[in-house]
Amino acid sequence: MNRLLLAFALLLPASAFAGPVQPLTAAEVPALLQPPAHGERIIALWSLDCAYCEPNLAALAALQRAHPRDIELITLATDSVEQRDAIEARLRGMKMAAYPARAYAEASPERISFLLDPHWGGETPRVLVIRADGSRLGISGALTAAQLQRIR
């Protein structure tokens, strides 16, 4: 019985255990960017004032649900973690509260943006895809069907 429960727990997506918005510091960025053991880690960068972020997050969540064992989805608000209540409320409103959520926690947010992707200008929405083989893909703006195909 214990083995069965353990096997079931291991099959659940990591998003099922998501909690409140966690701060992201510059020191934590390298660990976030490490390739996953298999599949892809998708880091969905968004902000509270972003018009295209909600449809992007919905599309990425649908992609993750279609491939729960292969895709890890993390939302990352480029807003300050000091706005945690507003970020969490928005994620709940978008039905994204089940996914691991982070928010910038540095006096200089540009530093975190640069560490995440030195080729990124800071615009949102932004998607970073980190594959198990170490390759990466960055996409800015509203996602198209063709771009979603490239992610998976």
Score class of each variant (00 low, 15 high):
Asp49Glu: 12
Ala146Asp: 07
Ser47Pro: 11
Asp117Ser: 07
Arg3Thr: 12
His119Glu: 13
Val127Phe: 08
Ala145Glu: 15
His67Ser: 02
Pro13Trp: 05
Glu40Asn: 12
Glu106Met: 10
Pro125Asp: 05
Gln147Glu: 05
Ser140Thr: 11
Leu5Asp: 14
Glu88Asn: 11
Ala31Phe: 01
Glu72Gln: 13
Glu123Tyr: 11
Glu72Ser: 09
Ala77Gln: 08
Ala146Tyr: 06
His38Tyr: 12
Thr124Arg: 10
Arg152Asp: 06
Arg3Ala: 15
Glu88Ser: 14
Arg152Gln: 11
Leu148Trp: 07
Pro23His: 01
Leu12Met: 14
Pro100Cys: 01
Glu88Gln: 14
Ser108Met: 14
Gly134Glu: 09
Leu148His: 07
Arg152Tyr: 08
Ala14Thr: 10
Leu60Asp: 05
Gly19Tyr: 01
Val21Met: 01
Glu54Met: 12
Leu137Val: 02
Ser140Pro: 09
Ile43Phe: 08
Gln34Leu: 15
Leu115His: 01
Ile43Pro: 10
Leu4Pro: 01
Gln64Ile: 00
Ala103Gly: 03
Thr78Ser: 12
Arg126Ser: 02
Asn2Met: 13
Ala61Trp: 00
Ile130Tyr: 09
Arg126Glu: 04
Arg152Ser: 08
Arg69Trp: 09
Ser80His: 06
Leu91Met: 10
Arg131Ala: 04
Leu33Met: 03
Leu5Thr: 10
Pro30Phe: 02
Leu45Lys: 04
Leu57Trp: 04
Ile42Arg: 05
Glu72Ala: 02
Ser15Cys: 14
Leu24Met: 02
Pro68Thr: 03
Glu28Arg: 02
Thr124Ala: 11
Thr144Lys: 05
Val81Asp: 13
Cys50Ile: 10
Gly134Thr: 06
Arg92Ala: 13
Ala89Val: 09
Arg136His: 07
Ser113Phe: 11
Pro35Gln: 08
Ala18Lys: 04
Ala14Phe: 02
Pro118Ile: 03
Leu76Thr: 07
Arg3Ser: 14
Gly93Asp: 11
Leu10Tyr: 07
Asn56Lys: 09
Ala107Gly: 13
Glu40Ile: 13
Pro36Gln: 00
Ala58Cys: 09
Glu110Ile: 05
Leu4Trp: 10
Ile130Thr: 02
Ser108Gly: 06
Pro36Gly: 03
Glu110Tyr: 11
